[in-house]
C-alpha cells in the first residue's frame, strides 16, 4: 500500500480547496440562506407542518443533501478531470500506485470538501431555524456515506468527460432533477400514488429519506432500505471505477 501517494494526492487536492476557500464556501452558504428565506420564511410560513415537522426545519436535510451531492460530484469530477486536461495524468498512470490509492486520494479529498460544506450549511440552518437532531451519529454517518458515494460518482464523470461541458452535464441534467424530485422539499406521501411509485426508482429518495430520519425520526422509506440503497450505490460506483482502471477506459491506451 502506497500510503504516501494517497496522502500526497489528498493533501494536493485539499490545497486547492483552501486556496479557493472563499468561493468554495460563500456560494453554498449564500444559496442555502436564500432557500431558507424563500422556502422557510416566506412560503414556509403559509405551509402547515409536514409529517409533524415545521416546514422550515423539514427542508433542512434536503437542502444539505442537495449541496453535498452537487459539491461532492463536481469536486471529484473536476479533481480527476483536471489532470486529464493538463496532461499531468501521465504521472498518475506511471506511478507505483493502485487504482484504490488514486481513488482514495481524489475521492477522499472531494468527500472531505463536501462534508465540510454540509456541516457549514447545517450551522447556517441553525442560525435560521430551531432544529433538534434525533440521531446525531446516524446523521454524521449518512452524511459521510453520501459524500463518499457521490464523490465516487463524480470521479467516474471526471474520467468519462471529454471536455468541460460534459463535466457540467451530468450534475446539471441528472443530479439536480433527481435531488429536486427526490423529496428535498416535500414528503413523498404528498405525491399522487402513481408518482409515489415512480419516485421509488429515484435513488436519491432513499438518501434524503434516511437523512431526514436521522433528524426527525420520520422517513418516507425505512432506514434499513436507505442504508442498503446507499451501500449498493457506493458498491456500484466502486465496481465501475475498478473496471475503468482494469480496462483503462478513457485514461489508458
Amino acid at each position: 500500500m502506497n500510503l504516501n501517494a494517497v496522502k500526497t494526492i489528498y493533501v494536493h487536492e485539499m490545497r486547492r480547496f483552501w486556496r479557493t476557500i472563499t468561493q468554495s464556501l460563500v456560494s453554498p452558504v449564500l444559496s442555502t440562506s436564500l432557500y431558507f428565506v424563500v422556502f422557510g420564511a416566506a412560503i414556509g410560513s403559509r405551509i402547515d407542518q409536514v409529517e409533524g415537522v415545521g416546514y422550515g426545519a423539514f427542508i433542512v436535510p434536503g437542502l444539505i443533501m442537495l449541496s453535498v451531492m452537487t459539491q461532492a460530484t463536481s469536486n471529484a469530477s473536476f479533481g480527476i478531470y483536471f489532470p486529464k486536461f493538463t496532461g499531468t495524468i501521465y504521472e498518475l498512470l506511471s506511478a507505483p500506485v493502485s487504482f484504490l490509492e488514486i481513488v482514495a486520494g481524489y475521492v477522499g479529498a472531494a468527500a472531505t470538501k463536501a462534508l465540510f460544506i454540509g456541516i457549514i450549511i447545517l450551522l447556517t440552518a441553525f442560525a435560521f431555524i430551531d432544529i433538534q437532531i434525533a440521531h446525531p451519529l446516524a446523521m454524521i454517518a449518512l452524511l459521510m456515506l453520501t459524500c463518499i458515494s457521490f464523490s465516487l460518482l463524480g470521479f467516474i464523470i471526471g474520467i468519462w468527460a471529454g471536455n468541460f461541458e460534459q463535466l457540467q452535464l451530468i450534475p446539471l441534467l441528472v443530479i439536480t432533477p433527481l435531488v429536486f424530485l427526490g423529496g428535498s422539499f416535500y414528503s413523498i406521501s404528498m405525491l399522487p400514488p402513481v408518482w409515489q411509485t415512480i419516485t421509488l426508482f429515484n435513488p436519491v429518495v432513499y438518501l434524503i429519506s434516511g437523512f431526514r430520519w436521522s433528524f426527525f425520526g420520520v422517513a418516507d422509506v425505512s432506514i434499513g432500505l436507505s442504508l442498503l440503497a446507499i451501500t449498493a450505490f457506493t458498491a456500484a460506483c466502486l465496481g465501475f471505477i475498478w473496471w475503468i482502471f482494469r480496462t483503462g477506459w478513457r485514461i489508458r491506451q
Binding site: N2, L3, N4, A5, K7, T8, I9, V11, H12, R15, E91, L92, A95, P96, V97
Partner: peptide, 14 residues
C-alpha cells in the same frame, strides 16, 4: 517546488 514535491510523494517516497 510543490509540483516536484507532489511527484516525490506520488511515487511513495517520504
Amino acid at each position: 517546488f510543490s509540483t516536484v514535491r507532489f511527484s516525490r510523494g506520488l511515487f511513495g517516497k517520504p
